[in-house]
Write a protein that binds this DNA or RNA. Structure first.
Length: 415
RNA sequence: GGUGAGGUGUCCGAGUGGUCGAAGGAGCACGCCUGGAAAGUGUGUAAGUCGAAAGGCUUCGAGGGUUCGAAUCCCUCCCUCACCGCCA
């Protein structure tokens, strides 16, 4: 068994009749198999003991022959039942937290707070695509030539602004919020993707390498960073563990062909600064609040208006127990768009990964709780800065916190 | 890519085909000692799973095989280390 399936918990009560049947069947076969194993083991020991005394073991060997066949059959049956059961379980999503609102779609998400006031522009606003191309610093056509659709090329000060955002976020989270910076592989194996919940159900969203090692490009830093603790047992006093990591993210965007085709909202490749926490179970609820506030702090320092919503049951991801989305104001769309998603996974990922800690209370290895959130998605932050800081002449003012990273530059102009 | 050596519990590290789930140590927990601590010292301490319990079963990198019986023997793969080659 490669992970720790839930045995007695709520998921089992929640299961379909089909999975209940599968569980019963597995258990029955397992008991039968274990009885045979016990019998076989004790006979083997007996043979060993008699042989050690110099006794005759021939008659005993004959007796054992049929048992061996029965056992082989039982073990094959068990393996099949086990696999059926595990496949059922692997496809079950996490249970929503008790305070998650019920709902069917993103329309049922509940706003929990807003920050800042959308700016009134005295001129017709442009979207980031027009702003970027008028500045000659953002080019989707050439990216289309180099690769294909849903890629971008940035140039000059805009490329630097993109880099500045990454540096600014990493510095803020390490210095002000107490996260440890990480650098990780951008290519991961299947076990890691199973651990965080992308596999087995969401393979279509991933880029898979043409290689017999079953490697995939990461869709988010969450995968390599969270799997840092796969198959590990950490000491309680090390907790909480808080990591920040900048990586590119690769998503095939299968199933969203028609959505957000213009601009850099939805790309196959984008950068993200990710926050990941490993905490004790009793601390995860509070940790989600602080993690979300860390992501919000970036938008506040950048002076970008946003709102925070709690996702309803119907809009949550597969692995999450509770998720806050942070949505930034986009003047060109006159609405808030997602720029960060912060989730508490409770023990769902930890169970799949066998990520545990030694509890001083019970003395046993207990499952950790994992959380993560974007802090923030760089491409979307860049376009939010462009649109919110645009000026009548098409130039873009640089938010003051980013100027040290821009060599003192305060406005991006054409040229 | 080539050659060689390895992968054992929270960690380090022994291990003869048969009472090995695994010596020893570290760490941790509890106790003794102490004014308190350190040192010293005693005891305990793998995980998962089934069971009300007694107890059972699985797991020594992964997967196959040989055997009545595998941590131990054979095969394949993965990973680590060393040296050589190549390389940003």
């Amino acid at each position: 068994m490669k992970w720790l399936p839930p045995s007695q918990n709520a998921v089992c009560n929640w299961m379909s009749p089909q999975s209940r049947r599968s569980r019963k069947k597995r258990k029955k076969i397992q008991m039968h198999c274990e009885n045979l194993q016990q019998e076989s083991k004790s006979r083997a020991k007996n043979i060993g003991a008699i042989k050690a005394k110099g006794g005759d073991i021939e008659p005993l060997l004959k007796e054992v022959g049929d048992l061996k066949n029965q056992l082989a059959q039982a073990e094959a049956d068990l393996a099949a039942a086990q696999q059926e059961w595990e496949e059922l379980l692997a496809g079950l999503p996490n249970l929503p937290a008790e305070d998650v609102p019920e709902g069917k779609s993103e329309n049922d998400n509940v706003e929990v707070r807003t920050w800042g006031t959308p700016k009134e522009f005295a001129f017709p606003v442009k979207d980031h695509v027009d702003l970027g191309s008028d500045l000659a610093q953002l080019d989707f056509e050439v990216a289309g030539k180099i690769t294909g659709s849903r890629f971008a090329v940035m140039k000059n000060s805009l490329a630097r602004l993109h880099r500045a955002l990454i540096q600014f976020m990493l510095d803020t989270h390490t210095a002000a919020h107490g996260y440890e910076e990480l650098y990780v592989p951008f290519i991961v194996n299947k076990d890691s993707l199973f651990g965080t919940g992308q596999l087995p159900k969401f393979e279509a969203d991933l880029f898979k390498l043409r290689d017999d090692r079953d490697f995939y490009l990461i869709p988010t830093a969450e995968v390599p960073v969270t799997n840092l603790l796969r198959d590990e047992i950490v000491e309680e006093k090390q907790l909480p563990l808080k990591f920040v990591c900048h990586t590119p993210c690769f998503r095939s965007e299968a199933g969203s062909y028609g959505r957000d085709t213009r601009g850099m909202i939805r790309q196959h490749q984008f950068e993200k600064v990710e926050l990941v926490q490993f905490v004790k179970p009793e601390e995860s609820e509070q940790a989600l609040e602080t993690l979300t506030s860390h992501a919000e702090a970036i938008l506040q320092k950048l002076g970008l208006p946003y709102r925070t919503v709690v996702l309803c049951t119907g809009d949550m991801g597969f692995s999450a127990a509770k998720t806050y989305d942070i949505e930034v104001w986009l003047p060109s769309q006159q609405r808030y768009r997602e720029i960060s998603s912060c989730s508490n996974f409770r023990d769902f990922q930890a169970r799949r990964m066998k990520a545990r800690y030694r509890s001083s209370e019970t003395g046993k290895a207990e499952l950790l709780h994992t959380l993560n959130g974007s802090g923030l998605a760089i491409g979307r932050t860049l376009l939010a800065v462009m649109e919110n800081y645009q000026q009548a002449d098409g130039s873009i003012e640089i938010p003051s916190v980013l100027r040290p990273y821009m060599g003192g530059l305060d406005v991006i102009r054409r040229g």
